[in-house]
Nucleic acid binder design. Structure first.
Lengths: 202, 202
DNA sequence: CGGCCATTTGAACATCGTTCATGACTTGCT
DNA sequence: AGCAAGTCATGAACGATGTTCAAATGGCCG
């Protein structure tokens, strides 16, 4: 059998990625396998390796799609120039996304490349794009053009929010009186920004 | 062949865990397999299942050992009653540990339990023990006995530090001018604590 | 109609987690 | 001492996995 390609008008690669994403959303990264993808799309396992080098590449590309969707959702909240509020909006949107896409989002951190492998540029660019949103929101707190400090603060805060969301989704951060992750993120952002204000001025 | 148990004076379970930890330290969670453990300790794969229910249990117990070691290292830095300094000391010790034990520590977050499974109590207790250290260090910033707020702040800060260390080890947080994770953690703690001071008082 | 060639296959290899009937040994009792 | 009971370890077996690649297929062009 050959020449099937045109079936859905979508390229085979996209069909594979769509099926893969579906699997991860349903069963987590552990449920993903070349054979399961093949089963769903009605191809044989070998076919996947005609399109991608290996499963890691498939995973990485699914992740890229997730990052794109996250970026799109964050884009819905336009910064208004008030750092705390803008950052809280971003943080909440981020948290909402991680909960609405828990398994897909967990994948980004459960998955690790084999030893030698490097994170591809097109992946790193997507991370930077997300960070740029945080930088934009936080920038008013710093002297104009102090890009180094802005970049650091954005990464610190972003990583912090990520840590909360991460531990929260994995349920590794419970407290007797279950404080919602949302409150924790508000707490982090509010206090961090307040702290910045004591040392830094517009 | 039976009755080998006493060989190293250590119980078989401990031998398995030691071998497992060695494997993860060398090759990461992906390198761990029942068969590889068996190979190293000179037993057959089946033996491991006489001691543990499944590999997840082995992993969880290795993780518990790592948490114990981390706790021991954090214990070396006794709090002096100055929150910012105490917290920075904790944060740096934490970061140092994660870098000295990168693969073992990454395991804690790469590994996820199958769908139904719950995190065991003896595991959760170890997390709480770590958090208690942060609570102790941060407590002076709050009104005596305000345990709820102390608990929340400790978790917020701890998760934040975790996020930085996590993204840093995974190399997912680079900035043009590579800011060291150590500076980022100092930055987070300093500003968060300063922010707390503006709203909260002793 | 014939042949080229991109596309797809599926068997094959080495690995994995897990189970469990079988066997080998120790121990304790008579 | 001899035997039974009980403990511990085995390793083959099952159904999975990622990955490779020679072979088979079928659409297209001449």
């Amino acid at each position: 059998m050959a020449r099937r390609q045109e079936q859905g008008s979508k390229a085979l690669g996209e069909i594979i990625l769509a099926a893969g994403e579906e699997i991860v959303a349903e069963a987590g990264l552990k449920g993903l396998s070349a054979r399961e993808i093949a089963r769903r799309i009605g191809y044989s396992p070998g076919t996947i390796y005609n399109v991608f080098d290996n499963l890691d590449e498939v995973v990485l590309r699914i992740e890229a799609g997730v990052l794109d969707r996250l970026d799109a959702e964050l884009g819905a909240t336009a910064p208004a120039g008030r750092p705390r509020d803008d950052l809280v909006r971003l943080g909440r949107a981020y948290l909402a996304f991680t909960h609405a896409n828990a398994r897909l989002w967990s994948m980004l951190f459960e998955h690790t490349l084999p030893d030698g492998a490097e994170i591809p540029d097109w992946y790193r660019m997507r991370l930077d794009r997300l960070l740029a949103r945080v930088e934009t929101a936080i920038a008013p707190l710093f002297a104009h053009g102090d890009q180094a400090r802005i970049g650091e603060a954005a990464r610190v805060l972003w990583a912090g929010v990520h840590g909360i969301a991460s531990l929260s989704v994995a349920d590794k951060l419970t407290i007797i009186t279950r404080v919602p992750a949302r409150d924790m993120i508000d707490n982090l952002i509010t206090n961090y920004v307040a702290g910045l204000a004591t040392s830094q001025d517009v």
